[in-house]
Amino acid sequence: MNTKVISLVSIGAHPGSGRTRRAEQDARAVELGLQLAGQHLQVVHAGDPREEALRAYLGMGLDHLDVLEQPAGADVLGVLGDYLRDAGAQLVLTGSQAETGEGSGMLPFLLAERLGWPLIVGLAEVESIENGTAQVLQALPRGQRRRLKVRLPLLATVDNAAPKPRQSAFGPARRGVLAARNVMVTQDELLTGAELQPARPRPKRLKVIKAKSGADRMKAATAKASGGGGKVLKEVSPQEGAEAILKLLVEEGVIR
């Protein structure tokens, strides 16, 4: 295949020890990329090229990994966007959320917005790429899959529905090259200017369980959340649609 595939990777951290490692989801993005493009896969990280944890990606059989040199706290959005456009990327894969740093999970969205590309969340499998269109499977909750046809170039995030990353081996990890590239540095205005505070727990849909037995409770816990008050809106204007969504979010207490 001669579609240009690029995987974006970040530095991960083991949840138990906090030690740096390859990030679980990003490694899946690399795995998917390797399955699609083999040796032509390009892998990019924006950050510190001396970070040894990056070698764990090289250990998956890459001969080099481009590192856009960035200090901690820089806004990498611009450099990544420029890099992807200059490289002529057709399919960009990345994890859904970083394990270190802000970990907001916003980068793929902002990047897609900046590039003006479609974004697929939870890519599970690329079935085919033909005539500039990719046919993919998107992972939905409870193991469901949705088949999508999307024009290239596109950006996709992978989560645990994507194939398990291959083992990282010491030999290729040691031989591989972390190719540092000098690029512009942009201060992250938001990060420096804004105040950080612990996140509030995300509101959960209220499920009133009136189960009597354990079996009932089990059933209730695994049942599909069924909001009885749902409405199907058809052929409404974007304005009306957005308003309906906003109203629901306020009702559910997601937005206050």
Partner: peptide
């Protein structure tokens, strides 16, 4: 293991755990 990254079954996971947590169970 070192060149091919082909430790079967739970092998890769155990090795990753050893690297990240110093114990095979993670």
């Amino acid at each position: 293991t070192l060149e091919k990254g082909a430790t079967p079954n739970k092998g890769a996971e155990v090795l990753d755990n050893l690297i990240a947590t110093d114990n095979p169970g993670g």
